[in-house]
Structure formats: structure tokens, C-alpha cells
Write a protein that binds this DNA or RNA. Structure first.
Length: 490
DNA sequence: TCTGGGGTCCTAGGACCC
DNA sequence: TCTGGGGTCCTAGGACCC
């Protein structure tokens, strides 16, 4: 696939090899949001803490502004540690000789996710408007395929193909020699975000996702880095392996032991040797290091799991643990219901000091929406850790099933073919007869029977199975009113 | 002073089926 | 009499991401 590209021409896009992909990454997003509503924070070191309350020392750094980073404060750092590096501004009392210098003190704020989501909504509106395809990765990050909106042609009069065309107005702003149309468009997007959402972003522009991702990171904050198709390898080559998306501390160490320190090293390494050390991921990372990534930008899909967890001061107390799990279970079940999804697997997480993560899960015979069942299964699974001290507990539901919403057509597939393969899955836009389909899916419950038979046999699951059956009846009725669900798909 | 909380994907091993 | 082989589902844990 990669072979046929003719250098210098702009007409080879048919195979998709010269796509234009943007990666948009908001700069210290939470801190930027706080500045948006509190302009006096501009230029100040700002630390937004998770699990942090005003005046406390617990929690961790969710986001630090660049001014705070200059003091060494980093993301995920415990608040008490950040406070060592950068005292709290509120503690900087000019009357107190022992108080920190106000000039070297920061503002510490608790996370306010609801507000950040509002701002993210404004950002998202711009992105949606600017992209052919938009993939939101998180509240502050997204990929855009903009191939049909712009091009790699030189801006201005460069490309012969443009002879009959007027230069696009957006490119007219500055000296346009080595500039591409893509760069001009990226600048436009960036400026629109700043203007319409009020927060700064960094943008990476490249012919594929993994390179765009690295590019957006290369000149933060307020960056705009453009990597045209011919420059991908040379752009990546000098970077350390850790800068490649998908390489974390463990893989970085493994690679270092193989003598691989840079993307160039990785690009030159033997894919088979990498596969031996890293499994399937080896060759994949090798491709990324060479800028070879043909993943398409696909819209964000439905979630695969929903979970909630919270930390405790380490305790073995049964009542505390059950109360915590009960609250987490209720919250997870509520969110699942809000999103109109059923779940077939319920699990817990129990973290024992110092940091031993245990997970347990149980699958039901069929998908349910049943908060009581989430709690009782979670309690059941928790029993194994009855005597253990835990420092964190979590509850998760997975094996999610959104079929009862507009995707009811999926229920029309033969029971048991389980795959629900991509083909016709156009996110519900298509099915006019959703209600009918859903009802038949629910009532001709043969699908349920088949799964029952597979999963529901073991006698150990008897009580669960009973509950599950009840719930299935319940769910059959809920399906009819469950149509609201797609609404929160923003 | 415990590294917060929400996710995704991959792998290995076991159970079970044909 | 040899373990034989393929396939799926489930669970648990690990690595990684923001």
C-alpha cells in the first residue's frame, strides 16, 4: 500500500496515503478552564487537584499550569509533594515571617469536572464543525480527519494543480513560502478554539494519527507542528522511544535493554526481535516509530465498561468496605441506566497496601439493568477480601449492551452470532422500526436462552441466575421506555 | 504519605465443547 | 491407545493512556 506515492504530487490521495490528520490537545486543560472563569489566575502557577479539597494536603495533581510546572510540579504527583515544591498562595501571609514568598506560591483548586465538560463542549462544537471525522479521545484531546477540507499542497501559488484555483483566503495571513494549506487550516482551527471556547490548544498535523499525536506534543503549550508526508521519518527519528504513543515506562526499559533508545533505533530494529520481547505490540511500535500508521480516524464508539472507584485510608473493617462498595455499585448502576446500557459482567477491584491490585468479576447469564444485583454480586466478590486491609475499592460493569436503544437492529441478528460485526452498525441513524425490533428482540428471547444455556449452567450461580432472570423480565419492559438513552450521547 | 480515577487493549490460562 | 486439535468464553492481571 505504501509504495505508490509519487513525491511532490498532490493527486495521490486515492489510496488514503496522504491523509491530513490533526491531533488537538488542550494545554493544561483544567487549569485553563479555571483561568477562563477566574481571569486573575492568568500567569499564576495553578494546580488543580483530584481528591483535593481546599486547604487539604491529600489528593493528587490532575493538572498543573506551565508556571507551576516550572517549580517541578507534575501531573499525578501527590498534593503534599507539590506543596513542598510550590507552597499554597493562601499560606503566604505577609505578616508571618515563616510564610512562603507570595511570589513563589501557587493557587490550589479542586477539580470541577462539570465545568470543564461545559468548556469541552464548546471546544467540541468547533472541532465537529471543522472535521470530516472527529474522534474524541478524552475531555481534552481529539483526532480530526480533515483530508476533504484541506490538503498538503503548498499554500499560495505553489502547486501546478492549483493554477485554476484561487488561493484560499485562510492562507493569506502570512509569508506563505514553505507553508501548506494544511498548516493554514490548522491555524484556523486553533484560533477558532481560542476564540469560541476561550482556552488554548496545541495542534499536531501529520498524515496519520500516531505522528499527529507526537506532533501536538512537540511544541506545547500553544503549539502548532506540521509534519508533511515526506518528513515523517526524519521528524520522529531523534525522539526518545518514550515519546511514542503506547510506550510507557516498562516498554521503554525493555527497549533500552535491547539497545533501543530513539525512534530511529526502533525504526531500524528487527520486527521479529521486537515481537519476541514485546509480543504483538512489538511490530506495531516498530511501525509507529517509522511513522507507518494506517489506522483510520473513526468516531468515538460506545464505552466498553463503566466503573467507579475510591480510595480509603487502609482498613480491614467489613462495614466500611461494604458501605463503600454499596455506594460505588449504586453509582455505577445509575450511570449505566442513564446511558441506557445493560451489563452482563459485574466486577470489583480491591487494592491492598502497598499496592496490590486484585480484580474479581462474574458474568451473568444475560445482560441486565439491575442496581440491586450489582450490589449483591459486588458484595459476593468482596467476601474473598473480608479479612484483608484495603486502600482502594472499585466496582465495574462490563460486557455492555446498548441494544435496547436505537441500536435495536443488532438484536435482529441471529442469537449467538455474538459478534455484532461492524458492517451495518451505523449508530442507530438507520433503524426506523427500532421499537418493533427491540420488542421482538426482547420477547423472542431465544437469544437469551442460548446464552443462558452457555453461561447459566453452573449451580454456583443459581441465586444470581434467578436474579438475572427476574431482571430480564424487567428489562423487557424497560426497553420500551429506554429510548431516551441516545440523548446523552452528546 | 501513600499513586486519584476513569478508561482501553492485550495476554495467559482454564473450562468446556465438538 | 495417542493425548489430539480447534474454537469460544471467562477470569485475572498488566501496560498504557489522559
Amino acid at each position: 500500500m505504501a509504495g505508490g506515492t509519487l513525491p511532490g504530487t498532490a493527486t495521490d490521495e486515492a489510496g488514503g496515503s496522504d491523509r491530513v490528520v490533526f491531533h488537538v490537545d488542550m494545554d493544561c486543560f483544567y487549569a485553563s478552564c479555571e483561568r477562563l472563569r477566574r481571569p486573575e489566575l492568568a500567569g499564576e502557577p495553578v494546580v488543580v487537584g483530584m481528591g483535593y479539597e481546599d486547604g487539604e494536603t491529600i489528593g493528587a495533581v490532575a493538572t498543573a499550569s506551565y508556571e507551576a510546572r516550572a517549580f517541578g510540579v507534575e501531573s499525578a504527583m501527590p498534593i503534599f509533594e507539590a506543596l513542598d515544591l510550590l507552597p499554597r498562595r493562601a499560606d503566604a501571609d505577609p505578616e508571618d515571617p515563616d510564610a512562603p514568598d507570595p511570589e513563589a506560591a501557587g493557587r490550589y483548586l479542586p477539580v470541577d469536572l462539570d465545568f470543564y465538560k461545559e468548556v469541552a463542549g464548546d471546544v467540541k462544537a468547533v472541532l465537529r464543525d471543522c472535521a470530516d471525522t472527529l474522534r474524541e479521545v478524552s475531555v481534552d484531546e481529539a483526532y480530526l480527519d480533515v483530508t476533504d477540507r484541506t490538503a498538503w499542497d503548498a499554500a499560495g501559488a505553489g502547486a501546478a494543480a492549483d493554477a485554476a484555483e484561487d488561493p484560499p483566503p485562510s492562507a493569506a495571513a502570512g509569508p506563505a513560502e514553505a507553508r501548506t494549506l494544511a498548516e493554514g487550516y490548522a491555524r484556523h482551527v486553533k484560533e477558532r478554539i481560542e476564540r469560541e471556547a476561550g482556552v488554548p490548544a496545541s495542534v499536531g498535523v501529520a498524515p496519520n494519527m500516531s505522528t499527529a499525536k507526537v506532533a501536538s506534543d512537540a511544541d506545547k503549550p500553544d503549539g502548532l507542528v506540521v509534519v508533511p508526508p515526506g518528513s515523517v521519518e526524519s521528524f520522529l527519528a531523534p525522539l526518545s522511544t518514550a515519546e511514542i504513543h503506547g510506550i510507557g515506562p516498562v516498554t521503554e526499559r525493555t527497549l533500552a535493554e535491547m539497545g533501543i533508545e530513539t525512534a530511529a533505533d526502533l525504526a531500524a530494529a528487527d520486527p521479529d526481535g521486537l515481537a519476541d520481547e514485546l509480543g504483538e505490540r512489538g511490530p506495531e511500535l516498530h511501525r509507529r516509530a517509522r511513522g507507518d500508521d494506517d489506522r483510520e480516524v473513526t468516531p468515538t464508539g460506545l464505552p466498553k465498561s463503566l466503573s467507579r472507584e475510591s480510595s480509603l485510608s487502609p482498613t480491614a473493617d467489613g462495614e466500611t468496605k461494604r458501605e463503600t462498595v454499596s455506594a460505588l455499585a449504586a453509582d455505577v448502576a445509575r450511570r449505566a441506566r442513564e446511558r441506557g446500557c445493560l451489563y452482563r459482567t459485574i466486577g470489583i477491584k480491591a487494592v491492598e497496601p502497598p499496592y496490590d491490585v486484585n480484580t474479581r468479576a462474574r458474568s451473568l447469564s444475560g445482560p441486565v439493568d439491575d442496581p440491586d444485583l450489582v450490589e449483591s454480586v459486588a458484595f459476593d466478590l468482596l467476601a474473598e477480601f473480608a479479612d484483608d486491609r484495603v486502600r482502594k475499592l472499585g466496582v465495574r460493569v462490563s460486557n455492555l449492551d446498548f441494544a435496547e436503544s436505537d441500536q435495536a437492529t443488532l438484536g435482529g441478528f441471529e442469537p449467538g452470532d455474538g459478534e455484532g460485526t461492524g458492517g451495518g452498525r451505523s449508530d442507530g441513524v438507520s433503524d426506523r422500526d427500532g421499537a418493533t425490533e427491540a420488542r421482538s428482540a426482547a420477547t423472542d428471547g431465544d437469544g437469551g436462552k442460548l446464552t443462558d444455556w452457555v453461561g447459566g449452567e453452573p449451580t454456583a450461580a443459581a441465586s444470581v441466575g434467578d436474579d438475572a432472570e427476574e431482571s430480564e423480565a424487567r428489562r423487557a419492559t424497560e426497553r420500551d421506555d429506554g429510548q431516551a438513552s441516545l440523548g446523552d450521547w452528546e
